[in-house]
Design a binder for these strands. Structure first.
Length: 504
RNA sequence: GGUGCGGUAGCCAAGCGGUUAGGCACCGGUUUGCAAAACCGGCACACGUGGGUUCAAAUCCCAUCCGCACCUCCA
């Protein structure tokens, strides 16, 4: 029997069993990016977290509707577009496309819906009208519309603060148009000259928070299962979403609120304002996208992750990513070993090598049960490590079984079964989604380029060494290896064949 | 001032009341012409500090120190 899925709910500050409102169908809304710049690793972490959630739930056999919005209307976009002398919507559409590619690159599935603010002005305006009609919001003479925070008794229930606490340390600017300093804009008047849309209150743009309520309701309904984002969205963004949504629809908005922890650099949060952010794109010059994902999954999603940046002379290296990438190398290597053994054999968990068979038999259940415990990805990765070790063990033993055809056949089928289990274990994690030769080719290409090496000249050296070895000229052979080692190339002698790789 | 998150062996990181996950590094071994890779074994009987509860605490309670974040836009 499978264990229930338990997830941490920011609202209740405790683990809760996932009980979809519609049995068998989980509806998830994730706050996506504001499209004015490249996605940084913090975005990658949050998105990877929710990607694992979606993949995992699907692997459990649940139907998932996953919505991730695109904030394509925002002041930052307006300013950036102005700098670039580009139309703001054209600019944000372009950046949305870039960001999509960046997230896809780190293994995130394309959401079922990616609604944009610019395509949902009607929904937004209608929602604001409904809020005004209920006296939950008010229009000021400049044409702005504010949500009246005091009218929503439960304001603060997500971030666990109350209005008075907020006021004491609040750095909110005095604004006499607002009834309460914490009231937030639903609609911002933009004047005739600047970017905006017509509305009953004049030309303007929606405030940041209202879009999510409108778009979540459009694609998931006014009440749905899981709403997520980074921890920095708890207040005020998600708090405000709850206020405006529940004020108008009168029922709980999202049932479960999940928040991913920060990615820190030198223990400080990676953020645009601190200027310490590293984009996904930056990292791709030195590391494989799978390394990024593996790196994130190595820690629980709610805790902080420290991202190290080290300068070695001219080069910038990311030690955490290097370590992760070495592990990904190891996993692909183990898979590759299985592939070579398995051929087209029918998968079967044969007990020819009991220790190996037992790891293969239990791996998937172990991964799924780890993920069921509030997405315990570190434990899931440990299972992957066990699986890889078992695969290598199998590769080591299989040769010895050759003289016993029946047992050899069993080992071959076990390898095929191992491959299948590998796939079942890595799919919910979004890891190892390409064939190992694809991975090896792309990492090798990148590492060669990084070191200014080319494969042909390495192959030539290797051939020369092989000739020396056949003539038992070990002094020459070792000299060549030392030379290559100095360049960062590692030689691997398998019987008479010599391969090479460039380790991290 | 308020509200959260975190402090686990050299490093990263699970565990959150009772059989010490895992990884990196390091040290032996198998293997190899020598290496590498792979495998086997050793690795640390660690849990910020001080009290308390309990037969039993890294895990619960109280106090306290340190780091970070949020309360303005931020994933």
């Amino acid at each position: 029997m499978v264990s229930p899925v338990r997830l941490y709910n920011t609202l209740s500050q405790s683990l809760e069993p996932l009980e979809p409102l519609e049995p068998g169908h989980v509806r998830i809304y994730l706050c996506g990016l504001t499209t004015y710049d490249h996605a940084h690793l913090g975005h990658a972490r949050t998105n990877s977290t929710f990607d694992v959630l979606v993949r995992f739930l699907r692997a459990r056999g649940l139907r998932v509707t996953f919505v991730r919005n695109v904030t394509d209307v925002d002041d930052k976009i307006l300013h950036r577009a102005a700098e670039l002398c580009e139309d703001p919507l054209t600019f944000s559409a372009r950046m949305a496309h870039v960001n999509d590619g960046e997230l896809k690159c780190v293994g995130c599935l394309v959401p079922d819906h990616e609604p944009r603010v610019s395509g949902h002005l009607d929904d937004i305006v209608r929602l604001i009208e409904a809020l005004i009609a209920r006296d939950a919001a008010y229009v000021v003479d400049t044409g702005d519309v504010y949500f009246a925070v005091r009218g929503f008794a439960e304001y603060g229930k997500l971030s666990h603060r109350n209005l008075d606490d907020l006021r004491v340390g609040a750095r909110v600017e005095a604004d006499d148009r607002k009834r309460d300093p914490l009231d937030f804009a639903l609609w911002k008047a933009s004047g005739d000259q600047t970017w905006g849309w017509p509305s009953p209150w004049g030309r303007g743009r929606p405030g940041w928070h209202i879009e999510c309520s409108a778009m979540a309701a459009r694609y998931l309904g006014e009440h749905f299962d899981i709403h997520g984002g980074g921890m920095d969205l708890i207040f005020p963004h998600h708090e405000n979403e709850i206020a405006q949504s529940e004020a108008v629809w009168g029922a709980p908005f999202a049932k479960l609120w999940m928040h991913a922890g920060f990615l820190n650099v030198d223990t400080e949060k990676m953020s645009k304002s601190l200027g310490n952010f590293v984009t996904i794109r930056d990292v791709l010059a030195t590391n494989d996208p799978e390394a990024i994902r593996y790196f994130f999954l190595g820690a629980h999603y709610r805790g902080p992750i420290d991202f190290d940046v080290e300068r070695r002379g001219e080069r910038v290296v990311f030690p955490g990513l290097d370590e992760a990438e070495a592990r990904v190398d190891y996993l692909y290597g183990a898979c590759d070993a299985l592939t070579r053994i398995a051929g087209n054999a029918e998968p079967e968990v044969s007990d020819v090598i009991p220790g190996v068979a037992s790891v293969i038999r239990n791996a998937e259940a172990r991964v799924l049960s780890a993920l069921a415990k509030d997405l315990n990805t570190p434990v899931a990765l440990a299972v992957l490590g066990d699986l890889a070790k078992a695969a290598n063990e199998l590769a080591l033993q299989v040769g010895k079984l050759k003289k016993d055809p029946k047992r050899y056949e069993g080992a071959v089928r076990l390898a095929a079964a191992g491959l299948e289990v590998f796939r079942r274990c890595t799919t919910p994690l979004g890891l190892m989604q390409v064939a190992s030769d694809v991975y090896v080719a792309r990492t090798r290409g990148r590492r060669l380029a990084q070191r200014g090496l080319d494969a042909a000249s390495i192959d030539a050296k290797v051939e020369e060494r092989t000739r020396a070895r056949t003539q038992k000229d070990f002094a020459r052979s070792d000299a060549i290896r030392a030379e290559l080692t100095g360049l960062g190339v590692e030689l691997l002698d398998f019987g008479g064949v010599t391969g090479w790789k460039i380790p991290l």
